[in-house]
Amino acid sequence: MRGRTRHLDERVLALVAGGDLGRLARWRADRHIASCDRCRSGVAAYSTTREALAAEWTVPEADFGAIAHRARAAAAYAPAASRYRRRRWLLAAAVGLVAWMLLPNLEDQSNQPPELASRPPEAASAALLGLDGSAAQIGDRGQLSVRAYHAPSGTLSITEYYAP
């Protein structure tokens, strides 16, 4: 409808800021942004955040064994729906292919910090790194604690190692 401004959604703003939109979508977004202060400031905010994160967020040292453990635990934890999944794999593949064709330039997630970035093997004697890249924090009883986010359930857990 003419006369009404329809703003770009948040995902598109983020993709514009990262230069990750396809050519046609980018052209359409640029046309809109040229005449829309709100979306322009949205893109600017994402760009600032992106630059700050790129400059300052170093990927913490990760224990890939622990990550593999977590991945296996997550896989084991998934409800027993394998038969359902088997029946639907063709549909999922088709949807995935269409999504891949429509959104070919989605931001590469590989440079994000791993979900669990702790080094628990030597327990309390090790240098532990938390989810936000911070080191382990000392607890009120002298224990060391690290925090991890579990994306599927949206919960955060705090693991603590106690000295005897």
């Binding site: 955060l156 705090i158 190692y161």
Partner: peptide, 11 residues
Amino acid sequence: FGGLAGITVPS
């Protein structure tokens, strides 16, 4: 040493 741990889930 290393024999006792805790997991807290808030929120």
